[in-house]
Each structure stands twice: as structure tokens, then as C-alpha cells.
Computed example of a mutant assay.
Amino acid sequence: MTRQNDLPFSELFSAYAAGTLDAGLALLVETQGALRADIKDAVGQSEAVAGAFLEMTEPAPMRAGALESALAQIDALEASAPAPQAGGPVDDGEMDQLPEPLRYAIAVSGNHETWSTAAPGIHRIALDVGSQMEVELYRIQPDAAIPRHSHGGQEYTLVVTGGYTDSSGSFGPGDLAVKGPEDTHRPVGDAGEVCFALIVRDGAFRLTGALGVVQRILGRR
């Protein structure tokens, strides 16, 4: 397991500034930036650097009709995007506390009423943000535990509200934990406030122990 401060995250921010970052990770960066001024500043610096390199790039001629084509594609995207919807199965007061990028992602996903139960006291909802990765928002009640599991790839967990603790430490609002296939853990919601966590992963969620056996028998991830 790695905490964000242990990683050279300039590549992540640079990809975001260049517009090449996966949509799920872009949502994570935007949400964390809304929670932490240092992340917002780091992203801003990356955007400034990207802008400077763009200014230094030799301009290339545009093909005929390029502007009209780009505007038509933007219009098509806007027309196909679902309208934001309010409300949901979770207390509105809780949802109001989430950062704006995350609230918008929940709204445009169009499935804000399809929270599923992952374990006692654990609810989750898939977010459709056009990502190639799996993007979910978890709601973890105090003292509730996500079943022990490992990972088929990288898993990024951003705490939005409240907090959780596992064998690697405690994580609070704005903290980002990155885990890989070598990591196994059992996150438990901290006492007090409900924990909302944004999770982006590029590999399977693999249960361990008896639950893992059941998962493999059923053929589920």
C-alpha cells in the first residue's frame, strides 16, 4: 500500500492538465482538489506548465471544416448527456456535503437510486463517467467493515467524508490510498461520521477467505 505523499504524482496531474487522464481518475483528481488546497495548487501548476509547452509548440494548420466539426461533436455530447437529478436513497443532508464534482457525477450517472448493499452497513453505487476503469462511491457506516479483499490491479481510494482504518493506517477527508495486487486489507469505518469514499480501480475486487471461495464458485469478481 502506498499513500499519495509517497508517490511522484506529477504524472497524474500532468495527464489531467493535458486532458489525457482516464475520466475516473480525472474525477478523483477534481474531487480531491475540492477537498485539499495543496492538490488544487499542484493541479494548477501542472496546467500552467502544460500551457507553457503548448505555447512553445509549432502551430499546425487545421483542416477545412475542423472548427465546425468540433462544435458539432460538442453539441452532440451535450444533447446525449443525461440531465442531472436530485435526491437519492441516502440522506439529502449527507449528499449536500459532498464536493461539487462528485455530486455532479452522481447526478449525471442517472442511477442515483440504485445503491446496492455490499455488506452490513456498507452501500455502494457505480458512477458512469465514461471511464475505462471501475468507479464507485462507497458509503461506510461507523464500525462497518468492507470484507477483507485483495486486488487484481491498482485501486485508488479517496476519503471524501468521515474516515476509515485498515492495517496500514487511518485515512480521513482528502487522503488518498493506492493499493495493488500485493495488498490485502479490511477497511473499517471510523467512529462518528459516516465515511464516503470514492474508489477507482483497474482490476478485480477479490474477496479472501470463505467469502472468496463463494465468489469464485459464483464466478463473480
Rank of each mutant, 00 (worst) to 15 (best):
A107F: 02
D96L: 14
P61R: 15
T117P: 00
V49M: 05
P99Q: 06
L35S: 06
A76D: 13
L98M: 02
E55R: 14
I74T: 12
D96R: 15
L77F: 14
E30H: 03
D38V: 00
Q32L: 03
G87R: 11
A52Q: 13
I74M: 12
P59N: 14
P82S: 08
S46Q: 13
E58K: 10
Q32W: 01
R36Y: 01
L98T: 03
G87E: 07
A64V: 11
V90Y: 05
V108Q: 11
Q45A: 11
R36V: 04
M95W: 08
G44L: 04
A70N: 08
A76F: 00
S109F: 05
R63C: 04
V49S: 06
L102K: 08
E30T: 07
A105C: 04
A107I: 09
Q85A: 14
V49Q: 06
D38M: 00
F53T: 07
A52G: 04
E94P: 02
G87L: 09
A66C: 00
P99I: 00
E55H: 09
H112E: 06
L77I: 10
T31Y: 01
V108F: 03
V108K: 11
A70F: 07
L102P: 05
S46L: 01
E58N: 12
E113S: 09
A83L: 11
P82A: 12
A42C: 02
P101R: 09
A81S: 09
L98S: 09
R63T: 08
D92S: 15
F53D: 12
H112S: 12
M95S: 04
Q73V: 02
